[in-house]
Every structure is written in C-alpha cells, then in structure tokens.
Write a protein that binds this DNA or RNA. Sequence first.
RNA 1: GGGGGCGUAGCUCAAUUGGUUAGAGUGCCGGCCUGUCACGCCGGAGGUUACGGGUUCGAUUCCCGCCGCCCUCGCCA
Length: 635
Amino acid sequence: MKRTQRCGELRKEHVGQTVTVCGWVDTKREMGHLVFIDLRDIAGKVQLAFDVEKRPEIHAAAKNLHGEYVVQATGTLRARDPKNVNAKLATGEIEIDVAALEVLNTAKTPAIEVRDEIKTDPEIRLKHRFIDLRRRPMQRILQARAAMIRSMRATLDAEQFTEIETPILYKRTPEGARDFIVPSRAYPGQFYALPQSPQLFKQLCMVAGLDRYYQIARCFRDEDKRADRQPEFTQLDIEMSFNDREDVMALLEKVVPNFVRALQQDPTFKDCDWPVLKCGEVKAPFERMTYETAMRDYSIDRPDLRSRDLRLTELTAWAKGCSFNAFKGAAENGLVKALRCPGMAEAFSRGQIGNLERDAKGMGASGLASLTVGAPVSVGATYMSPLQGAIAKFIPAGEQDALVKACKAQPGDLIFICAHAKEKVVHAVMHNLRTVVAQKLNLLDPSKFALTWIIDFPLFEYKEEEEKLYASHHPFTLAQDMELVRKLAEAARKSGDGSVISRLKAAGFSLAQVLGIRNNQYDLVLNGTEIAGGSIRMHRTDWQEDVFELVGISKEEAEKKFGFLMNALAHGAPPHGGVAMGIERNLMCYFGLENIQEVMAFPKSATGRDLMIDTPNEVEPKLLKELGIEMTPPK
RNA sequence: GGGGGCGUAGCUCAAUUGGUUAGAGUGCCGGCCUGUCACGCCGGAGGUUACGGGUUCGAUUCCCGCCGCCCUCGCCA
C-alpha cells in the first residue's frame, strides 16, 4: 500500500498517527532551515514540514523537490501551533512532520500552472489536457459528472430498467445530421456509420420485449461545432413499453430531482461555486406549458421562464386596422408582436436601440419599432396621444390607446414592435429581444432554476415554398389524434395528383386542421435550454405508413430507409416511447458554464480536432488500399 | 461554406506614425532566509513576434497567402 489517506482527507482527528500520503508537489516554500511543501491530490492539499535540525538528509531531499514532482511522504501528523493555522485550507490545522520521503517521479515544468483560476488560451489547455485536468475545478466537474450519471443509473435501476449497449458501428441514415462513416475492410467500398443517437435500436429493444431500456449513450454528429456542441457527446437514452407520455414525464421527474439532490448533498462539492448548489430543491411535478402558449407568450419553444412575466403580445388583429402601412401590410398574412418592457422608457440609449434594430434586420426583419409610453393628457379639446417614438406620428391617438391597452402598458414603459410577413422572422426577433430585455432587468439569475415541460407540439410543420409537410419532431412520433391522421392519409391516397396539401384541400380538409394535430412529444426546458426531449412512438405499421404518406415518404423510400424498423413494428411491437437527455448540456446549466469543452474530459476543438493526440490524421496508403479507398490528390 | 476576433518569452499581456538592444508580471533555474502557506529578498536564463511571401533603407506594426484557436450565421434535435 502506497498511502494511508489522501492528502486532502487529513484532519485534526488524525493527529498523532503515522501517515503516508502520495501526491504532486504543489508549492515549495524554503525558509532556510525550514522547508514547507504543499502536497496535492484529488482530495486536496496537505502541508509537509521539513526541519534541517531534526532530519538533515530529509530536509536536503525536500530542497531538491520541484513543482509537479510525484512524491510519497511518511511522517507523524501533528497539530499546528494556533498562530500557524491556515484558515483558508481544509487541512490548515495540521501538517505532516516528514520522516521519509520518496520521489516517485520527476516532472517537466508544465505549460499550464496547476491553479484554480487561470486565463490560459483554450488551445493550450486542450493541448495539455492532462495538466489542465489536474486543476481542482476541472476535477470537481468530472467528479460531478460521474455523480450525476451514478444517480441516473441508481434511479433507473430502481425503476426496473435494463442498461443495454447498442452498436457504435451503425448504418448511415440519410435523415438528420451528417454521419461519420467508417470504412469496412471485409466489404471494400462499403461503410458503417457512427450513430447520431441509438433511436432505432432502442425501439427495437422494445419490440424485443426488453420492456425498459436505458443507456449512457455516446452520439456522433458530423456537423460544424458551436460553443455547446461537440462531434461526440453523451445522452441518457431511455425507452419504455406500455406507457404513455405521463409515464415518461413522471420518470424524469424522479431522475432530475434525484441527481440534483445527489450533487447538492455530496460533500465533495461543498466548496464549489455552482448554480446547481444554490438553486434549492427541484420540485416535482414540473410545470407544463403547451407549445402554443410558449410560442404565443415567448416566441420560442424553449422559453426561459426566469423571466416568465415578460410576455409578448400579439398585435396582428390591431395591426390589420393600423394606419401605419408597414404594420398593416405585414399583418395581412404575417405576424405582428410587441414586447412591453416595464419602466424601461429610459433604459436603452439611442445607440443600444440602434443595435437592437440592426440585430433584428440581421434576422430578416425590415425594422424594429420602439415606442415609449407617456401619460395620456388632454390639452384643451385636443387629446394628446400617449406614445413617443419615430413612428408614433403615423399612428392616430385612438389606435395608440388600443395598442397601449393591448400591451397592458403603463406610463414609463417601452414597447418594441416587430411586424413581418414571415412568422419565423418575428419569432426570432422577439425571442432575441426578450432575452436582451430580461438580461437588462437582471431576471436571468443563474442560480434560479426554471424547469418546464413543453408539450402538445404540432405533428406537422408546413413548408410553404415546397408545399410540403414535415414531421416536426421525427416521423415516428405518435399523433394525439391518429384517427384524423388516418382520414387524412386515406384522402391523400385517393385523390391522385398535386401536392399532399392540395389533395387534402380537394378532399375538404384545411391546412389549419392538418397543422392543428398535436403529437406526443415532450421537451424538458431549463432556463431556456432544452435539456431533454422525447416522444411516444407509433408502434403500428399502418399508422407509420399513414404519416409517411402525409410527409411524402414513398413506400420504396420508407422500405429503403426504415425497412428494418417497419418490419420490426410488424412483428408485435408494443406501445412504447422514451426520452433522451443531453448530459453535457445539463452540466453546463448546472455549473453555469458557456462552453461544452469545460464539462468533458477530452473534448475536441471547435474544428473537430483533438489537439493533444492530434487527430484526425492520415493513415498508411497500404491501409487505404486494403479498404478500397483512393485519395484524390490535395489541391 | 460565409462573417468576426485572436496568434509576441513556459503562461498572461505590453511595445507611440513603420525606427534601431522586443519589455512587464508570473512561472522556471540558482543563491540567501527557522513558521511559511500566492512566503520574502537577490541574481540568472528564456524570443524564428504561428508559418510563408510581399512593400520598405528598415516590419511585431502595412499588404497577400496559409495554419491554428475562439465566437457566430448556415448546418445540426
């Protein structure tokens, strides 16, 4: 045995014991006849004391130690004199009077200082990741990640789930994200693909009668990276049988509070400064909000409800009768929305308003109207309109009053209005604006956790340009009204030509009716981040065929792409559904971090390179030949 | 694929309009110091200014290219 305790575990209660510790030399303080070494391991630091008069050879050996040397030290644990206690250190009341010292390894000077706070360039940190991970904040994050996953497993095991591994060598799926592909040696010219998620396999597990599946699943997507995206990431992947959406939601309402509690109660993290440690108990059941409400009030399907009272107002009806032509025109077949900013008439400078307008234009808007609300007054017989701003003069007093009333605005408020023929543009602008205003109002406290389910999503999305319906989640999601889907599919099959929509219209169905169908999807949203999402699936092939019909996936195409799933569904698939939760995205929220690299042990750069091991890289021509792959010459 | 920012000592950053020996803090190495704990004091080493080209008497500085990192739009559930 090389050690009796870990450095950071030693306390007053061990005083008098002979202890052996191992760790890295953190700092050395030489005082002539005295040398102090702080020895560090994952549990913390402890002070080693060396006195030349007591043991000259050991003292001399201590003088030869350098930073990051790996050392084993044995000695008597003694209490420090009260005047020498270091209150900043958990081990500050004690030190080791070292009697034996062994250098287990020397160390080169690291590129990164092993300290809690560093400002080092991310490139350097990634190149020397094994040093970066020696730092306490990084070790705590990785420990917390493990604690979270441990808790997830415990919860699911208690609910009779079976952890099942699904293949990493998978098959290319033309839908969704770009696949990473892996050449096959046995079949030159043929390829595996890495899974974007285990979606189809988990459904096959249900068909197999495995009843309840989960996996801490690695997922791969070959898309361009972002601050919150990596080419490989981890999901808690869950699927269950004979359930409806309530069962899945109830399950996550156990999983999430359990792991939050696990993090909050773990003494390992008591010194950490994480939002998750300050957010209090996560109470179940979680709030629920329909997609319709979310879009109406917040213009986004993942609203940040820390600013729940900052709601948007739809003004389309008002704008249709508006004298200001820009609003009126947009309202004809588009959307007009307003954001009332309470008491913020003076909150933004001219320049800031200008920036907001510029951002709105960047999202496709033709402009962003801003109006401040004054007190309505009558001067003699003339009624003075309450609004001020560049466009106020185009809106008569009566219309202004109606606007103020619709927004429930008060004197001193600021009102932003965005109008556009494309709903998507208005939603993007207003969501962005709401975020800015909420920030300005200090509503986005990172230690406040606002959790909500978003439910009742539309089954279909309609792309006008293509005259095509798309599955808004994925095409395996069960509709709430399969009866109507059946009728639609039948109608679409009968009347021969034209787009699906024109055929449905010919059969007497309206677009609103089609888009009004809700599905069985549920997303879990935390402070504006989607931290989990899932759905109940269609377990019957005839239902599945109906939806394929409506989204324009032909029989041949369905057979080619999803044949094995369809075949499996035809062999007695039980009703089933599940959910997936992004581990990294969750951790980022809980730790208040902006970059996904901070919550992974060995992340890749934003261009998908591993800077430490330097990959991707070339392989030998011989290997390529074996795989039947020929390179085009580089340009 | 598009846009923006960045690249100078191990690390974090300076360097005037383009100007002669590229500096500081920290780390590192050595010395001194008996209670330090981000110890203190003294001394020292350390640079292909990412890389390649161009303009110029002269380039860290200006121009072009290229590589890398970060952010973002597209893309991505």
